[in-house]
Amino acid sequence: MESHVIARIQPRADERSRIVEAATIVCRQYGPLKTNVADIARLIGKSPASVYNVFPSKAAILDAVAASFFETRLCFTPSAANGPTSTTGRLKNTTLEQHRLVLQARDNDPQMFKLMALAAEANWPSYKQHLKRLEAAVAELILAGVATKEFATPKIEVAAACFCVSISVLLDPRIVEALPSSRCEASASELALFAIAALTRKAKYRERDRAKGYQAYRTADD
């Protein structure tokens, strides 16, 4: 790429980052609904018009702030495989860790938690990408479980999507916000195990029926 093209692109990338950083500060101070472009522009020493040259609207700015928060503070990292824990245990631990991060945001970063809920309610691109990352991480663990014969499902992506929906009470900020803290904490482990059981039950049934020679059951189950 030509050097003058790089020079033209880089300042804009830096400007975008500065706007997102400033918007994050303003959002934490006033909340997402009271955040305005004038305050963001003032914080970085720019005019509102210059901010609108980078982002088409306030909603687009808040979506970028939410995307940054999801990627850095709500990052769904599967539990490590290099240990004695089974894939079932890894999926449970990963689910509970993600739930812990959501609760942490709710209790320690309330304005950003409100932004999370707003992103979910409006189905912003940042939230849709967050859900895709969740499903991809769960799919990775389900695939590992199939390899170890803990799980039995021929449709990994469908199973991952269904699993994420079944535990949405632990992950969706709109639902978590409405539930008492004690109820979330008490039911999280049980709910994670209940959802995982749907993945393990088929594996157990198939192993049992293969041992008995019931091929007809296997065909019907598939």
Rank of each mutant, 00 (worst) to 15 (best):
residue 169 V to C: 05
residue 61 I to T: 07
residue 16 R to W: 13
residue 115 L to I: 12
residue 145 G to E: 05
residue 125 P to Y: 07
residue 129 Q to Y: 00
residue 90 R to A: 07
residue 216 A to E: 09
residue 126 S to K: 04
residue 112 M to C: 14
residue 38 A to E: 10
residue 197 A to I: 04
residue 44 I to S: 14
residue 69 F to T: 02
residue 39 D to L: 10
residue 96 L to V: 12
residue 160 A to H: 01
residue 209 D to W: 02
residue 45 G to V: 12
residue 121 E to D: 06
residue 161 A to W: 06
residue 151 F to G: 01
residue 164 C to S: 06
residue 57 S to W: 02
residue 188 A to N: 11
residue 167 I to E: 01
residue 66 A to E: 05
residue 157 E to A: 13
residue 93 N to P: 10
residue 166 S to V: 05
residue 167 I to K: 02
residue 80 A to W: 06
residue 178 A to V: 01
residue 89 G to R: 09
residue 17 S to H: 14
residue 154 P to V: 03
residue 109 D to S: 07
residue 134 L to R: 12
residue 44 I to M: 04
residue 185 E to T: 03
residue 210 R to T: 06
residue 186 A to V: 10
residue 203 A to T: 02
residue 210 R to Y: 02
residue 165 V to G: 00
residue 202 K to N: 10
residue 187 S to F: 12
residue 44 I to Y: 12
residue 212 K to D: 14
residue 180 P to N: 15
residue 135 E to F: 06
residue 110 P to A: 07
residue 3 S to T: 08
residue 26 V to S: 08
residue 165 V to R: 10
residue 65 V to F: 00
residue 130 H to C: 04
residue 177 E to F: 12
residue 14 D to G: 10
residue 138 V to P: 00
residue 104 Q to C: 14
residue 37 V to K: 03
residue 222 D to W: 01
residue 12 R to A: 15
residue 61 I to D: 10
residue 57 S to Y: 13
residue 38 A to L: 14
residue 169 V to Y: 01
residue 168 S to H: 04
residue 48 P to H: 13
residue 125 P to T: 07
residue 70 F to C: 07
residue 113 F to L: 03
residue 115 L to D: 07
residue 80 A to R: 10
residue 184 C to K: 01
residue 112 M to Y: 06
residue 147 A to I: 06
residue 104 Q to M: 12
residue 115 L to E: 09
residue 103 L to P: 02
residue 119 A to T: 07
residue 50 S to Q: 15
residue 77 T to F: 00
residue 17 S to W: 05
residue 68 S to V: 05
residue 187 S to T: 11
residue 33 L to R: 13
residue 152 A to D: 15
residue 212 K to E: 09
residue 108 N to S: 13
residue 34 K to N: 15
residue 172 D to K: 00
residue 91 L to A: 11
residue 201 R to V: 01
residue 152 A to I: 04
residue 18 R to N: 05
residue 41 A to R: 05
residue 139 A to V: 04
residue 194 F to W: 11
residue 212 K to M: 15
residue 174 R to D: 08
residue 206 R to Q: 11
residue 128 K to R: 07
residue 6 I to W: 02
residue 195 A to H: 06
residue 138 V to C: 02
residue 28 R to P: 14
residue 169 V to T: 03
residue 5 V to Y: 02
residue 111 Q to V: 06
residue 108 N to K: 15
residue 118 L to M: 13
residue 145 G to Y: 02
residue 217 Y to V: 00
residue 31 G to S: 08
residue 53 N to H: 09
